[in-house]
């Protein structure tokens, strides 16, 4: 049993495709570097002040592309299913292929890269934790490759754990990059109509619409309140005074919002609200929309089936 160990270790080393690993590493590190740069630039521009602005999802919904000309209901339904297929991938090779497809999708959607990169940056904290922790804590498997660093002999670096973490990161990036083409290429209400067509109940859709509308109102209120706090000499620190001030601040924000609800509701009733928002534009689904949807789902299944072929390694 012990004699068989080194042999199987070698075979695993060979079965990791030598070209994919460095390639995906390069892509990833570039993406993260870019995202970090973006963040830093934004921070330096604001001079230490945090940015609490809320992005407009559908700012570029009036362009003309593969995704823009796609019926929102079919788009949301098929890409949502596709995302689940990508999540089900287990190998690095297929996940990297999915990442490439997503990069192409962002390219063909003609949307600016900035928002997509911001999405990657938003996940980076959570994903970097996996990249740093998994290689050192994953379960030891017979015949796997361990790298032992000279300074930390107690913490061997598991190649399997690293590959698992990398697969997770690649899958997460693949799906996150697909979000802008999926959600940013139709107007927000059309996208939500798409979600309601795939079975989300209409009261919830209305709540989402209304909440989304009021996010911007409260964001402005928040900026205004914070500004007046700064004028009075408040600076956030790690102390009990900051927590007390912020506690009162949140209390005020919630009370304001609660007081507003009644007014909002009455204003809605005045304008004839009867429990749902009427929609005036319902795009017809044509054969082309369905063909696009079918294509995406097929790509997802092809990726999934490729994995089942015995020639590919499963890290």
């Amino acid at each position: 049993m012990t004699e068989a160990l080194p042999e199987s270790a070698v075979s695993i080393q060979l079965s990791v495709p030598a070209s994919i690993l460095p390639a995906s590493l390069v892509v990833l590190s570039l993406a993260f570097l870019f995202a970090l740069l973006l963040r830093k630039k934004k921070q330096s521009r604001k001079k230490g002040q945090s940015d609490w602005s809320i992005p407009h999802l559908d700012r570029h919904a009036d362009l003309d592309s593969f995704f823009h000309n796609w019926n929102p209901a079919v788009k949301v339904a098929s890409l949502f299913l596709y995302c689940f297929l990508v999540v089900s991938l287990k190998t690095l090779v297929c996940s990297a292929a999915a990442l490439m497809i997503s990069i192409l999708a962002v390219y063909f959607s003609k949307l600016p890269w900035r928002r997509s990169l911001q999405r990657l940056a938003a996940m980076s904290g959570f994903l970097i934790m996996f990249l740093l922790v998994l290689p050192f804590t994953s379960k030891e498997q017979p015949g796997e490759i361990l790298l032992i660093f000279p300074l930390f002999p107690g913490f061997p670096f598991h190649l399997n754990g690293f590959l698992l973490a990398l697969t997770i990161v690649v899958k997460a990036c693949a799906i996150a990059l697909l979000m802008e083409p999926m959600l940013g290429t139709s107007t927000f209400s059309a996208t939500l109509q798409g979600f309601s067509r795939i079975g989300i109940p209409s009261p919830i859709i209305q709540m989402i619409l209304l909440s989304h509308r009021y996010l911007f109102v409260f964001q402005q209120e928040l900026v205004r309140m914070l500004r007046s706090m700064r004028v009075r000499g408040f600076t956030a620190r790690t102390d009990i005074l900051t927590m007390k001030t912020m506690g009162n601040f949140f209390g005020m924000l919630f009370i304001n919002s609660y007081d507003r609800t009644q007014k909002v509701y009455e204003a809605m009733l005045c304008r004839g609200y009867r429990g749902d928002f009427p929609t005036f534009h319902t795009q017809e689904v044509n054969g082309k929309d369905l063909a696009k949807g079918g294509m995406w789902i097929m790509i997802g299944f092809i990726l999934l089936l490729t994995e089942l072929m015995p020639s590919l390694p499963s890290p």
Binding site: S50, W52, P203, Q206, M207, I208, L210, S211, H212, R213, Y214, L215, V217, F218, Q219, E221, L222, A236, R237, T238, T242, M243, M246, F250, L253, F254, N256, S257, Y258, R260, T261, Q262, V264, Y265, M268, Y273
Partner: peptide, 21 residues
């Protein structure tokens, strides 16, 4: 429901604030 939606957005906005640690 509309009222809960409005309160929800205030919770959302509050969760955007970062406190120094």
């Amino acid at each position: 429901l509309p009222k809960i939606a409005v309160v929800t957005s205030s919770f959302f906005v509050a969760s955007l604030i970062h406190l120094p640690l």
